[in-house]
């Protein structure tokens, strides 16, 4: 894993995490988060740890993976900190540091992969992908799936875009720029450190 100082730097600079310096540790976010009971640390504590550069602990925690983007914390935070966005950033950073992939990361990947392929999502495609990765959770959803099929609500066939090749070119270009950026910026950051 990358060292803690570099990770904190990346979080603060590349992802504008330095905003959490404004946090007054009031705990409103953790108190209003519907998933706080399942998190290793609430958002308040997570930010305290990030400020201390305990990034290893931060990125290995389950906290951000439980964030569902409900913005309940954001609309209540007295310091206007965009907590939800920091959760996104920490998810992206954790995934890059190849922490043991949490179930939610697999779910996101199962969701993204049909989108990349067809430009749109069908529930069946996402569920099939996820099912291959998590057979037990998928089985639990089986009775519901059957019901939806009976009610003619489960779309099985993908609905690709008309200009699928154009869409794919757009996404490839985005990917290419992304990779250039990451390599460029990180190399830059690491070299200025030495």
């Amino acid at each position: 894993m990358t060292d803690n100082t570099t990770l904190k730097d990346r979080f603060f600079k590349k992802y504008h995490g330095e905003e959490i310096q404004k946090c007054i540790q009031c705990g409103t976010c953790s108190g209003s988060c519907p998933f706080a009971p399942y998190m290793d640390f609430g958002p308040r504590q997570l930010f305290a740890m990030a400020r201390e550069a305990d990034m290893d602990e931060v990125l290995n925690s389950n906290t951000m993976w439980f964030c569902v983007s409900c913005y309940n914390c954001v609309v209540k935070c007295p310091r206007d900190i965009s907590i939800t966005d920091h959760m996104y950033s920490l998810k992206k950073m954790a995934a890059k540091e190849s922490v043991k992939p949490p179930a939610m990361l697999d779910l996101y990947r199962s969701f993204n992969s049909p989108v990349e392929k067809y430009g749109r999502l069908t529930d069946a495609a996402a569920m099939a992908e996820f099912g291959l990765r998590h057979p037990v959770a998928a089985l639990k959803n089986m009775p519901l799936g059957v019901k939806l099929v009976l009610k003619k609500r489960l779309e099985i066939k993908p609905r690709p875009l008309d200009n699928l090749s154009g869409f794919i070119k757009v996404m490839e270009k985005a990917e290419e720029m992304e990779n250039q950026e990451t390599n460029g910026k990180l190399a830059n950051m690491e070299s200025t450190k030495q």
């Binding site: 983007s69 959760m87 996104y88 998810k91 992206k92 995934a95 939610m104 990361l105 779910l107 996101y108 990947r109 969701f111 993204n112 989108v115 996404m171 985005a174 990917e175 720029m177 992304e178 950026e181």
Partner: peptide, 9 residues
């Protein structure tokens, strides 16, 4: 799903 995994996309 994309906010959580991709910067530019």
């Amino acid at each position: 799903s994309y906010w959580s995994t991709q910067d530019l996309k």
